[in-house]
Nucleic acid binder design. Structure first.
Length: 410
DNA sequence: TCTGGGGTCCTAGGACCC
DNA sequence: TCTGGGGTCCTAGGACCC
């Protein structure tokens, strides 16, 4: 097998952009975020700071860090510029977040040179034309290229030589594997499994007893570098949601209802913008002790209006709160089983009194109201039209709305 | 004054059908 | 009276990723 996969990953992306835009920040520990650290520069990481850490804890570890709230619109611009450079190398680019992408360069080597040449070209161009550090991993599978870019950081390139993949991988800790988080890592350590090599050589029955048959088989395959995945050029989102943290928490039903309405409004606007509608509505609530509960309902027909999502959400919210005196510290709404929304579909699923039930013309009215609001917001700005009761207290928002736009990016 | 906001995937049990 | 096996859909929870 050759080495067609590159994984490119911008280093400490938001913090690096801040240092690029503001030379005074270069060489200094920089934290981007508000209540929590969204990104920490490598100078800050040297003090044990990492995302997502509470900003107070981060400042306790690194008191001289500079905290900036972030210019999220700019991050998207830089991200697009980097992706444009990637597309100059091959059309086969799979962007997986604002700051990283997989490239399949198997069709480009005859034009541009070896994968190493292409990787170095990307690094040089991103450095010289944009001014940002980026790391590149090169390997025979997607999985391994991502591990390699992680090992190359910061600001490096690492090519895992063909034929030596397994040997190289087996020396690394299990935590490098995509899918091994804190819980799995602890479970593995308790079984004496610390390196990928340990994992690869653990009998499958023992492994599957520890972490379950599905995860066991998956990790075993990756530990032997068996990763069948290809670069996926376009993928459709399977769900779409929004959530809001509520500080120390809310108890009053009417206050929670207003928060829910604001979230339903945001979700439905994004759905309509994408021309999609969904059948399953899920509400998640989190309590002060960080436990959470979810309740879901699947409707007979896809919906996309604020009223429908809000209506179903209220019932789900009530069902999720088994103890109504327990403060709710987060409310989230997600919609899944998404379908392409023919205009007619959006209008059908409503019923007077119950906008989630199929039937009557009330839904068409709701849709027209939503679309007028969409148009007014497009023309006069997001804050121009609110449902008066829904606006969240800005003091309670721990992350700027701009960050939502960044996270929403497809 | 602990812990954001956007997602994906997996598991497990129950309902229901053939 | 007791009772199969496979498939699909739904719900709830949880781990994980950026």
């Amino acid at each position: 097998m050759g080495t067609p996969f590159l994984h490119v990953d911008l280093d400490a992306f938001y913090a690096s952009v801040e240092q690029l835009l503001n030379p005074e920040l270069r060489g200094k520990p920089v934290l981007v975020g508000g209540g929590v650290v969204l990104a920490a520069s490598y100078e800050a990481r040297a003090f044990g700071v990492s995302a997502p850490m509470g900003i107070r804890q981060a400042l306790a570890r690194c008191p001289h860090a500079v905290v900036v709230s972030g210019e999220f619109g700019r991050y998207l611009e830089f991200s697009d510029q980097v992706m444009t450079i990637c597309h100059d190398m091959t059309p086969r680019v799979e962007q997986i977040s604002v700051d990283e992408a997989f490239l399949d360069v198997s069709g480009s080597v005859h034009l541009l040179g070896s994968p190493d040449t292409i990787g170095n070209l990307i690094r040089t161009r991103v450095r010289e034309e944009i001014g940002l550090p980026i790391s590149v991993g090169i390997a025979s599978t997607k999985f391994l290229s991502k591990v390699a870019s992680g090992q190359a950081k910061p600001d490096g390139l690492l090519h895992v030589p063909a034929g030596h993949e397994v040997e190289w991988l087996h020396a690394l800790p299990v935590s490098v594997i995509w899918g091994v988080g804190p819980v799995t890592e602890r479970a593995l350590r308790e079984a004496g499994i610390e390196t990928v090599g340990d994992l690869a050589n653990t009998p499958s029955d023992l492994l599957e007893r520890r972490i379950g048959p599905g995860a066991g088989r998956k990790l075993r395959a990756l530990a032997w570098n068996r990763d069948p995945r290809h670069v996926v050029l376009e993928r459709r989102a399977g769900s779409l949601g929004s959530q809001s943290a509520l500080g120390r928490g809310l108890v009053a039903e009417d206050e929670l209802g207003r928060v829910l309405l604001a979230i339903a409004d945001r979700v439905s606007a994004r759905l309509r913008k994408k021309g999609r509608a969904g059948r399953t509505i899920t509400v998640r609530v989190r309590f002060s002790d960080m436990t959470s509960a979810t309740r879901a309902i699947t409707l007979p027909m896809a919906v996309a209006t604020t009223a429908a999502i809000h209506h179903a959400g209220l019932a789900l919210l009530a069902a999720a709160r088994t103890d109504p005196t327990e403060p709710v510290t987060l409310v989230g709404v997600s919609i899944s089983k998404l379908e392409q929304a023919a205009p007619l579909q959006l209008e059908l699923p409503f019923d007077e009194g119950d906008p989630t039930r199929a039937g009557s013309p009330a839904g068409a009215d709701q849709l027209r109201i939503d679309e007028q609001i969409d148009r007014a917001r497009a023309r006069f700005g997001k804050e121009s039209v609110g449902r008066a009761s829904v606006l969240l207290d800005p003091r309670r928002r721990s992350v700027p709305d701009e960050f939502r736009r960044l996270a929403e990016k497809d």
